[in-house]
Amino acid sequence: MAKRVLVVEDNELNLKLFCDLLRAYDYAAEPVRDGRDAVARAREIVPDLIIMDIQLPHVTGIELIGRMKGDPSLKHIPIMAVTAYAGRDDEERIRSVGANAYVTKPIALARFMEEVRGLVPTAAAQE
């Protein structure tokens, strides 16, 4: 069975790119366009990985990571932050709220998939 990945991204082009890329590598990508829906959707599907944009309207990815890591039903799920923030302290700040990985935009496709596979290998990769 394909590993399920919740992708929280408000930019339609990035959302399509991430989901298409994940599907090409045998992951089941579940898109969420509005961060306000992310926690409820994560509780509903209990994904194997969450890919979280940090700069979202209405609620920040940092706030969502904090909520998810504080939720007993979600805290075990690894979170990969994807962000255009690339300042010196940004990665440390994002990891301090619970992100397990950090990838900057524009993404390098190979690096993106390397991080995903490092957090949640597909069944084919485990053989």
Rank of each mutant, 00 (worst) to 15 (best):
M68H: 11
P72Q: 01
E92Y: 02
G70Q: 08
E115Y: 06
V103S: 07
I94H: 09
A81C: 09
T83S: 08
D71A: 03
R111W: 01
A108S: 13
P78Q: 14
G87Q: 09
M80Y: 07
R117Q: 12
A81Q: 04
K75Q: 15
K75A: 12
I65P: 02
G118K: 10
G118Q: 02
Y85N: 14
P78W: 02
V103I: 15
M80N: 04
R88S: 00
K69Q: 00
L109Y: 01
D90K: 04
H58I: 04
M80W: 07
E114C: 04
A99Y: 13
E91G: 00
L64T: 01
R93E: 15
H58P: 00
M68C: 12
T83V: 08
G98L: 11
I79Q: 05
Y85V: 13
G70C: 03
A86N: 15
A86P: 05
V59C: 12
P72A: 12
I65E: 00
V103A: 10
M68P: 05
G98E: 07
R88F: 01
A101Y: 12
M113G: 05
G87W: 03
P72K: 03
I107K: 02
I77A: 11
E92G: 03
I62Q: 09
V116G: 03
P106L: 10
S96E: 11
A84F: 04
G118Y: 09
A86D: 06
A84S: 13
L109H: 06
N100G: 11
V82K: 00
S73G: 05
A110V: 12
F112Q: 02
I107P: 00
I62Y: 10
A110G: 12
M80L: 15
I65A: 04
K69W: 04
S96I: 00
E63V: 08
A99V: 07
E63W: 09
T83Y: 11
A101L: 12
R88A: 05
T104N: 12
A84V: 13
F112E: 13
G118F: 09
L74Y: 04
A110C: 10
R111T: 14
I62F: 08
D89W: 04
A110I: 10
Y102C: 09
S73N: 08
H58C: 05
P72N: 00
K69I: 04
P72H: 02
I94W: 14
M68V: 09
E91K: 14
R117M: 10
F112R: 04
Y85H: 15
E91F: 07
G118I: 09
S73L: 06
Y102Q: 11
A110F: 11
E91N: 03
Y102S: 02
I65N: 01
P78R: 13
R88E: 00
D71L: 01
L109A: 06
D89I: 01
A81D: 02
G98R: 08
D71G: 02
R93Y: 10
M68K: 01
I65T: 07
V97K: 08
A110M: 11
D89N: 14
S96T: 01
G118C: 12
R67P: 01
R93H: 10
P72C: 07
V59N: 03
H58G: 07
